[in-house]
Simulated assay, not measured.
Amino acid sequence: MTVEVRPATVFDDVAAVIGPKRPNASVCFCLSHRIPAKENQALSGPARGEYVRRLCAEDPAPGVLAYDGDEPVGWAGVAPRSATQFDRSTRIPHIDDLPVWSVWCVRVRPGHRRAGMTGALIEGAVAFAREHGAPAVEAYPVDNGDARVDLTMAFVGLRRWFEAAGFTKAADTTSTLDGFPRVLMRRDLRTGS
């Protein structure tokens, strides 16, 4: 398998990976951490897709996609923290004034898991942020140790995934997901890493 990670500019490919299964759904498309809660709750059905279609046409794109040949098989949501709900979070701290980027969602389609896709997506998200001038990239994964995490909750990532990609724990948070604490992980890009 040859994996290539590219900016998420093709809406149909984004929809194939993170689009809802039902066209009238009011979830997914990776919007819950990108837009205010009221706006997220109000967007349902085709309106969610149209919102993401517009994001795919913007610069920067709303994230990155992993491809196996021409097939989109994975997604990582990545954007400046200032353009996400993490910027206003009272549970996930700001540790300094750097204009960091955030990776908040990593998803690999069934049938393509356990093939190194997660690492490729994280590295692709970091490269994308670096290309757009990010001095550092943050993630807010669960710190689950060896405990199993429900796949529907693993979208925020696991601490060990980010450690394997060169991130280090920068702070604790007061956020939890599926009973696990979330930690703030950071990778500094100013040193060339």
Rank of each mutant, 00 (worst) to 15 (best):
T2L: 13
V3P: 00
V3C: 01
V3H: 05
V5Y: 01
V5Q: 01
R6P: 00
A8Y: 01
V10H: 07
F11T: 04
D12G: 04
V14P: 02
V14S: 12
A15I: 02
A15Y: 09
G19R: 07
G19N: 05
R22L: 13
N24Q: 10
A25R: 00
S26A: 14
C28M: 12
C30I: 08
L31F: 05
S32N: 15
R34L: 15
K38V: 13
K38W: 00
A42L: 06
A42N: 03
A42R: 14
L43Q: 06
S44R: 13
G45Q: 05
G49F: 09
E50P: 00
V52Q: 13
C56Q: 11
C56M: 10
A57R: 15
G63K: 09
G63P: 13
V64F: 13
V64D: 14
L65E: 10
Y67M: 05
Y67N: 13
D68F: 11
G69V: 09
E71L: 15
V73P: 02
V73F: 09
V73A: 11
G74Y: 12
W75H: 10
A76E: 04
G77Y: 03
A79C: 05
A79V: 05
P80Q: 11
R81W: 06
R88I: 11
T90F: 08
I95V: 15
D97V: 03
L98P: 00
V100T: 15
W101N: 10
W101G: 09
S102T: 14
S102P: 02
V103W: 00
V103L: 11
W104N: 09
R107F: 11
R107H: 12
V108N: 08
R114C: 11
A115M: 09
M117Q: 10
T118G: 05
G119M: 03
G119I: 04
I122G: 05
G124Y: 09
A127V: 04
A127E: 14
A129E: 12
A134P: 10
A134Q: 11
P135T: 07
A136M: 07
A139F: 03
Y140W: 04
P141F: 03
D143H: 07
D146R: 08
A147K: 14
D150C: 04
D150R: 12
V156N: 01
R159I: 00
A164S: 14
A165L: 08
T174E: 10
T174Y: 01
S175A: 15
L177A: 05
L177G: 02
D178E: 09
G179M: 03
F180G: 11
P181M: 08
R186D: 06
R186A: 07
D188Q: 07
L189D: 09
